[in-house]
Design a protein around this nucleic acid. Structure first.
Length: 865
RNA sequence: GCGGACGUGGCGGAAUUGGUAUACGCGCCAGGUUUAGGUCCUGGUGGGCCAUUGGCCCGUGGAGGUUCGAGUCCUCUCGUCCGCACCA
């Protein structure tokens, strides 16, 4: 008997798959295209090539591969491609440090990833391989950019960026630590620079609504909904009479308009200086605004920090009651959201409340809980221990009216739907929702307000003042202004530079020969755009390119993409739940609007994978506790490493890696190997029927055959039910254990050759999606054919059934006995069996049976008194 | 604060619709094979109490509830993790 040598077995099968191009799948119109099979596009998020693949990669590709194999054997034409998200900061930072060109480091890393994907035996169609940093790819990234530009979905606008005055450089947000430059410690300034944006906000509603129709985890959908942050409310106009300017504000609570007691503008609001001009507050406003604008977003957004602001020395008129309320500038109001100005209702908003307290402004309650007997005893509205006293924490007798609802302790934020308006003119007494509607309608009649929707989502800022990215294909001409590079001049190649370090401009600016160009429109001198694109742009369409990866005439052929899209199963980490998945959805919708695509959503189904911890701890460089997949693949083989990451827990949950556990899975694979060795050596292939039973062989095959069919059924259902590979593998373990116990008849008659061969081949077949090398090896040894060419097995229903079952007997819901019963026994027979057991007799002694619960095929519960 | 996920043996984790809690693996214990160790094969292994076979009680973070019956459903509560967060 040969020992289990995974290295040898795995090399053998990998060679077969590579030589024969087993996992290549043709496009329509190509030879060998099989239009009788339905398509299935199984896609794992493409890796960012940095160093070598880690254990998370092993997990996510093991999952994707299991799905791909399962789909193939269920009759699908499966595309599983591979590529690399190869542009990006880590390679560039490494270049700054070491001087090694990012392309060189990236290519090295890609070679390593490619090597390991093959070594892991992942069933990839390598003819579709791509790297986003390759000109044959980014040419089309640039082309898409130009399409979006043409459509008005890409535009330029001034935006604030972080600037270090000492290094004379723009900094990425991650390079700003506590408001200071991470390299020299100089406080960072904010500069307004022209930046490129994609108009993703135009798609906010569609991105929100279309979440309904896709099969994604609920928590990911929720994150996307929160990120889009759609709020319905009203835009209401407040007028500054002194200067004759109207200021619209957005509010979700028009019902609280009568409680607006002041008005606040964001420091970035363009009118702030104009408003303060000539007032005694002018100097203080300038000082405040300059300080606020220079502060980091992180500092400003800390919720604990006390409210600050200064008066503008002006007032606006509240349109619902004509009251003049004071104007302030304060940094808790954000320019990016709504209109950059708010009406402040301190009685019903925590932030406004904090501000009012700090500046001693009026807090006027206009919404109160509807009358409720429990809450308002007629005699003593604030008796100690009553609802009111508890809210404010004060003894009775000391409460002012407005404090009854808790104003003294904080704003009243009731959302029970039971609130009614007070102190609100004609609207007093209305419920909150009713008042929201009525007040908005009333204001809309004379143009002082209208229903409005606001979003948290911002346009996508895509320019990066960085080297290692896709050049933005536009030029600036003194005569013609901004000119897109014509399609036939693409790609705009990324030039080589000596110094990658950012200097306030993109490093590309130093490539003078490259920057200086000629205007495609007038032929005059022009300069190239030196910013590069965010790498999320590259990864927002790669799944389209896979469909038609070798097309050098177009980004893709629409018919070819139509034949593959949408992706049927997308698999990746939750860390991309928002940005990547939102951007890719936006791209697909925009491209569909340009009549370049025929789908509205890229990813029909999404599966997010859990993290792997080690011995209960998160893996991190500070702990130095990384699991290096190479180490395990070399020691135990790829099949063990892959099976283990799938076995330790449900794939969407976090799972804990232990070295002992790996050994357990390796033991199991070796056990299956030895079973195969023994079976092949000592049994003869027999002519067997479909379920593996033969009539002319000695032995007692039924128990083992039943177990094999049980395993087929269990594994199939576990995969169908949300990819529960952990329990699927456990079922194959049970089958192998059963084969060991029954092969020599430890409990009676040996199982016989046919049953043993069937059980062994079935174990190999069921294990194939998880441990493809061993699965193929075992199956070939027993059956003489290639398991991936065999359809996925189907259980024989008659083998899943049994003549008898274990009847559970309970007395008062407690388990008292188990007894074998015929499957078709009638209810009264089951009760008779239950009553016949010793344990039941004991528990029934002297008691009266008041009820008999009988669940046929399951249990009898006798209720006694 | 808002939103979401999760709490089950010594450990990782199982448990279709409410119906035998702890499958499978690790660890541990016992027996066997082997020149020996590792390997390999078989069996046992939630806790407590009594015991000769066996039996009784408790047990899925905690407290209630619904039900003949709850890990599973409902209410409250504690804890851990994740996402968002001055978004008007």
């Amino acid at each position: 008997m040969e020992p289990y040598e995974p290295q040898e077995i795995e090399r053998r099968w990998q060679t077969v798959w590579a030589d024969e191009g087993t996992w290549e799948v043709p496009n329509p119109g190509q030879p060998a295209f099989d239009d009788t099979k339905p398509k299935s596009y199984v896609l794992v998020m493409l890796p960012y090539p940095s160093g070598e693949p880690h254990i998370g990669h092993l997990k996510v590709y093991a999952i994707g591969d299991a799905i791909a194999h399962y789909k193939r054997r269920n009759g699908y034409r499966v595309m599983q491609p591979m590529g690399y998200d190869a542009f990006g900061l880590p390679a560039e930072n490494n270049a700054i440090k070491t001087g090694v060109h990012p392309r060189e480091a990236t290519d090295r890393s890609i070679a390593s990833y490619r090597h390991w994907f093959r070594r892991w035996g992942i069933s990839i169609d390598w003819t579709r391989e791509l790297a986003t940093s390759d000109p044959s790819y980014y040419r089309w990234t640039q082309w898409i950019f130009l399409k979006l530009l043409e459509r008005g979905l890409a535009y330029r606008k001034e935006a604030a960026v972080k600037w270090c005055p000492k290094d004379a450089t723009v900094l990425a947000n991650e390079q700003v630590i506590d408001g200071r430059c991470e390299r020299c410690g100089t406080p960072v300034e904010v500069r307004q620079l022209e930046q490129w944006f994609f108009r993703i906000t135009d798609y906010a509603d569609r991105l929100l609504d279309d979440l309904e129709g896709i099969d994604w985890p609920e928590h990911v959908k929720t994150m996307q909904r929160n990120w889009i942050g759609r709020s319905e409310g009203a835009e209401v106009t407040f007028r500054c009479e002194e200067l004759g300017i109207d200021y619209p504000v957005f509010t979700t609570r028009p019902d609280t308009l009568f409680g607006a007691t002041f008005f606040v503008l964001a420091p970035e609001h363009p009118d702030v200086f104009r408003l303060a001009a000539g007032t005694p507050e002018e100097d203080r406003v300038h000082e405040y605004v300059n300080r606020a604008i220079a502060e980091s977003a992180e500092d400003r957004s800390s919720e604990e920090r006390p409210k600050t602001g200064v008066s503008l020395g002006r007032t606006v008129t509240n349109p619902v009651n004509g009251e003049r309320i004071p104007m302030f500038v304060a940094d808790y109001v954000l320019m990016e959201y709504g209109t950059g100005a708010i009406m402040a209702v301190p009685a019903h908003d925590q932030r406004d409340h904090d501000f009012a307290r700090a500046f001693d402004l009026e807090i006027r309650q206009v919404v109160a809980p509807a009358d409720d007997k429990e809450e308002q005893p007629a005699t003593d509205p604030a008796a100690p221990g009553s609802e009111q006293a508890r809210i404010t924490g004060r003894p009775s007798g000391s409460l002012a009216d407005e404090e009854v609802a808790g104003i003294g302790a904080g704003p009243f934020l009731g959302h029970s739907g039971n609130e009614r308006l007070i102190n609100s003119g004609d609207f007093t007494g209305m419920s909150s929702p009713e008042a929201t509607r009525s007040i908005t309608e009333w204001l809309a009649k004379d143009g002082r307000g209208r229903p409005s929707v606001s979003y948290r989502l911002r346009d996508w800022l895509l320019s990066r003042q960085r080297y290692w990215g896709c050049p933005i294909p536009v030029v600036y001409c003194d005569g013609c202004g901004l000119v897109p590079v014509p399609e036939d001049q693409l790609p705009v190649l990324l030039p080589d530079v000596q110094d990658y370090a950012p200097k306030g401009k993109s490093p590309l600016a130093s490539a003078e020969d490259w920057v200086a160009t000629e205007c495609p429109r007038c032929g005059g001198p022009a300069r190239r755009e030196t910013d590069t694109m965010d790498t999320f742009v590259d990864s927002s369409w790669y799944f389209l390119r896979y469909c038609d990866a070798r097309n050098d005439k177009a980004a893709w052929d629409r018919e070819v993409v139509r034949s593959w899209m949408p992706v049927d199963q997308y698999i990746g980490g939750v860390e991309h739940a928002i940005l990547h998945l939102m951007y890719a959805r936006f791209f697909v919708k925009a491209l569909a609007d340009l009549s370049l695509l025929d789908v509205q959503e890229p990813f029909d189904a999404l599966f997010t994978i859990g993290m792997i911890t080690r011995e209960g701890a998160k893996m991190s460089s500070s702990k130095g506790n990384f699991v290096d997949p190479a180490e395990y693949v070399e020691r135990y083989g790829a099949d063990t490493a892959r099976s283990y990451v799938l076995f330790i827990g449900a794939p969407d949950q976090d799972a804990d890696w232990t070295d002992k556990g790996v050994e357990g899975v390796h033991r199991f694979l070796a056990r299956l190997w030895r079973l195969k060795e023994e079976v092949v050596e000592r049994t003869e292939p027999a002519i067997s029927d479909e379920r593996g039973a033969t009539s002319d062989q000695p032995g007692n095959p039924h128990a083992l055959l039943a177990k094999a069919h049980w395993a087929i059924d269990k594994v199939t259902r576990d995969i169908e039910r949300g990819f529960q590979f952990n329990t699927a593998i456990a079922a194959v373990m049970e089958l192998v254990n059963e084969a060991y116990r029954l092969k020599d008849g430890l409990y009676g008659h040996p199982a016989g050759d046919a049953a043993l061969r069937f059980a062994t081949a079935t174990a190999g077949s069921l294990l194939f999606p998880f441990a493809p090398h061993l699965g193929a090896e075992v199956y070939e040894a027993v059956e003489g054919s290639r398991v991936w060419e065999e359809p996925w097995p189907k259980p024989d229903p008659t083998m899943l059934e049994s003549d008898t079952f274990t009847l559970v007997v309970q007395v008062n819901g407690k388990l008292r006995a188990r007894v074998e019963a015929a499957v078709d026994a009638p209810k009264d027979e089951l009760v008779r069996l239950a009553l016949g057991t010793e344990a039941v007799k004991r528990h029934l002694d002297g008691k009266e049976i008041v009820k008999e619960v009988v669940v046929p095929g399951k249990l009898v519960n006798l209720v006694v008194r």
